[in-house]
Computed example of a mutant assay.
Amino acid sequence: MNAREAVERLYGGEVTGVRRAGGAIFLVSLASGEAVIAKEGVGPGATAAEAAGLRWLGEHGDLPTPRVHGHDDQWLVMQYVPPGPPTPEAAEAFGRNLAALHQRGAEAFGCPPPGGPADAWMGVAPMRNEASPDWPTFYARHRVLPYVRDCVDQGLFTQDEAELFEKLCDRLGDLAPAEPPARIHGDLWSGNVHWAADGVWLIDPAAHGGHREGDLAMLQLFGTSQLQTILGAYAEGAQDQGVPLADGWRDRVPLHQLFPLLMHAAVFGGGYARQALSAARACLR
C-alpha cells in the first residue's frame, strides 16, 4: 500500500496530490482542499505507538499534537500542521506548558501510553516500554544496558567500557533525585518541536512514563531554537506549580542524554559511542 491508498482507506476523500516531505513521511492533498500527513511505520508496532503517544500527550491540551485520523500496521494518517516561526513568545509558552504536561503523570516509570504497545520505537531504533518499580530500574534495564550490549556486539565498546556503564547503572539511585513518573515525549529533540503559527506542537513522540529531566536533556542534545527561553520558562512554570526542578538539574543533562547517545551509537556508529562514554564518565566524576 502506498501513501495515496493509505489516506483513501484510513481517512477517505479524493487524493489530488502526494509529495514526499522527508523519509517515509508524505504530504497528501485532498480534493476538499485539506492536506494530511501519511507516515509509514519503521517496524512492527511503530504506528500504534505513535498514535497512542500523540493522543496521550495531547489529552489535556497542555500542548497540541496532530489529530490522528487513522492507522493500521503500516501507515499512520494525521493532521497536517503548517510550520511557523520560532518566536520568543511561543518558546516561553512551550516551556511553561511542557512543565504542565509532565505533571499529568503516568502510571509507572516505563509504562507505554494507554493502548500503546510495549515494543515501540525511537526513530529507527526499537525501544521497550515496560512498567518498572522506579526510574533507576527502568532506565538501566530498558534504556542503557540493551544499547550498551548492542554496541559491544558491534565492537564499539570494549568489555572494560561496558563495565563503566554497568557501574553507572548501579549508582543511578544516587545520581538522580527521586520523582514521580512524568508524562514525557521521550524524543524531544529539535526536529520534534514543531513551530506553528499558534505556537509549538509536539510530533513524533516516543512517549512513556519517565523522568521529566529526560525531555529537558533531549532538547539540549542537538540544539533547539529559543532553547534558553524554553528552559527558563519551564523552570519558572515548574516552580509556579509547586514542583520545582531539583537542584543540579543542569548538571544531570549528561545522565539523561545517555540513552539517546547510546541508541544513536547502536544505529549510526562510533562518534556517538565516544559521546556516550564521555557522558558516562562525566556522571561518575
Score class of each variant (00 low, 15 high):
246 A>L: 10
123 G>W: 01
138 F>R: 06
213 E>P: 08
231 L>S: 15
7 V>E: 08
254 P>E: 09
64 P>K: 03
18 V>T: 10
172 L>I: 05
27 L>H: 13
245 L>W: 05
172 L>Y: 15
15 V>C: 09
101 L>A: 03
279 A>W: 04
195 W>A: 06
141 R>W: 08
119 D>I: 01
118 A>D: 12
47 T>V: 00
177 P>C: 10
213 E>M: 07
115 G>C: 12
240 D>M: 03
77 V>S: 05
285 R>A: 15
191 G>V: 15
146 P>M: 08
182 A>L: 07
251 D>L: 07
138 F>E: 05
263 M>E: 06
38 A>I: 10
44 P>Q: 11
279 A>Q: 08
95 G>Q: 05
111 C>Y: 04
160 D>T: 15
48 A>F: 01
269 G>M: 10
87 T>S: 15
260 P>K: 13
260 P>G: 12
40 E>K: 14
270 G>A: 14
151 C>Y: 07
68 V>R: 00
113 P>Q: 09
134 D>N: 12
97 N>G: 04
223 G>T: 04
261 L>W: 06
189 W>R: 14
76 L>Q: 14
232 G>K: 11
98 L>H: 05
272 Y>F: 14
283 C>S: 13
74 Q>R: 15
265 A>S: 10
132 S>C: 13
140 A>G: 01
119 D>V: 00
170 D>A: 15
3 A>D: 00
237 G>K: 04
239 Q>I: 02
61 G>F: 01
45 G>R: 00
229 T>W: 01
43 G>W: 06
96 R>V: 01
163 E>D: 07
10 L>G: 10
203 I>W: 02
71 H>E: 09
154 Q>H: 07
22 G>F: 02
163 E>N: 14
76 L>K: 12
192 N>V: 15
14 E>W: 02
33 G>N: 10
225 S>V: 04
34 E>I: 04
135 W>F: 10
160 D>M: 11
243 V>H: 14
270 G>D: 14
274 R>D: 05
76 L>W: 03
163 E>Q: 13
213 E>H: 11
6 A>D: 00
267 V>Q: 02
183 R>L: 02
276 A>T: 07
170 D>C: 11
58 G>W: 00
120 A>N: 14
6 A>V: 00
148 V>I: 08
168 L>F: 14
284 L>N: 13
83 P>I: 02
23 G>W: 02
106 A>T: 08
210 G>S: 04
280 A>R: 12
80 Y>R: 01
39 K>V: 00
284 L>S: 14
108 A>C: 05
249 W>F: 09
270 G>I: 03
182 A>M: 04
198 D>N: 12
